[in-house]
Computed example of a mutant assay.
Amino acid sequence: MPKQIYFFAALLWAGVIAFFCLVQLNNVPLGNVSNLDKLVHVFFHLVLTMLCFLFFQKHTNDINSLKPIIISFLFSVFFGIGIEIAQELLTATRHADVFDVLANLSGAILGVAFILLFDLKTKVR
């Protein structure tokens, strides 16, 4: 698959994250799941980390290097922090939350864990 597809997939996913994190969602029925928004943050950044990795891995053409993993992880974490700052500074209905940042970090860590587990599984075969 061409690396441009991974780039556009990661860019589109980052846009989805930005949209849902910056618009007012008070009227959306989310059920009675406690801290559902934190689980959504974890999912957002798990997927973002993995999509970025696919792009950077194809870009560097070095599968055994940790560089694509590190870059993907850092991008996801700092993107999440940037979104939280934007919520505080650019919206009237949303506010920065340190627990959202921790959920973003957790998602990025899970993304790295999945990448490493998949890599290890493919090397064992």
Rank of each mutant, 00 (worst) to 15 (best):
A18T: 14
L36S: 07
V40N: 03
F19G: 08
K67C: 02
L116T: 13
T93Y: 15
G31D: 13
A9Q: 03
M1E: 08
K38H: 04
L117A: 10
F8H: 02
V47E: 03
V23D: 08
F114A: 07
K123V: 06
I83N: 04
S65H: 01
L25E: 15
F56K: 01
I63G: 04
A18Q: 05
Q87K: 13
K123E: 08
V98T: 09
V101T: 11
L120N: 14
V98P: 09
D97P: 15
A18S: 13
F20L: 12
V40H: 04
F99D: 01
L105I: 03
H59Q: 06
V101C: 05
I63S: 10
N104T: 00
A96S: 12
L11K: 00
W13K: 02
E88Q: 15
F19N: 12
L51P: 04
N35L: 03
L117F: 12
K121N: 11
H95D: 06
D100R: 02
V124F: 07
N104Q: 02
A113G: 04
F118G: 13
F55H: 02
N32W: 13
H45P: 10
A92Y: 14
W13E: 01
A18M: 11
N61L: 05
A103W: 00
I115W: 07
Q57D: 03
G111P: 11
V40M: 07
A92H: 14
I17N: 04
H45V: 08
A96G: 13
K58G: 09
A113W: 12
P68Y: 01
Y6I: 01
N104S: 01
V112N: 09
K58Q: 09
N104Y: 00
P29G: 10
F55I: 00
I17M: 07
V124D: 06
F19S: 11
G107D: 03
A9H: 00
V77C: 04
A9Y: 03
Q57S: 08
D119Y: 12
L90P: 11
N61Q: 14
D119V: 08
N32L: 13
F19L: 13
A92M: 14
I109K: 06
F53W: 10
F75G: 09
T60M: 08
F7M: 05
I70G: 02
I69A: 05
S34Q: 15
H59Y: 10
L74I: 13
F43K: 04
L51M: 05
L39W: 14
D100P: 06
N26F: 13
L36C: 06
I70E: 01
L89V: 12
V23F: 15
F20P: 07
N64Y: 07
L110W: 06
F8V: 04
F75T: 08
Q24T: 15
K38F: 05
K3Q: 02
G31M: 14
R125G: 15
V40D: 03
L22P: 14
S72L: 02
F43D: 04
P68G: 00
A9S: 11
D100M: 04
A96D: 09
F8D: 01
F79S: 07
T91S: 06
L90W: 14
R125K: 15
A92Q: 12
L39Y: 15
R94Y: 14
N64A: 11
A96H: 12
L25I: 15
P2G: 05
V124C: 04
I81G: 01
F55K: 00
L66D: 06
I115F: 08
D62Q: 11
L54F: 11
G31N: 15
D100L: 03
I5T: 08
P2I: 01
G111F: 04
D100I: 01
L105F: 09
F114P: 12
N32I: 14
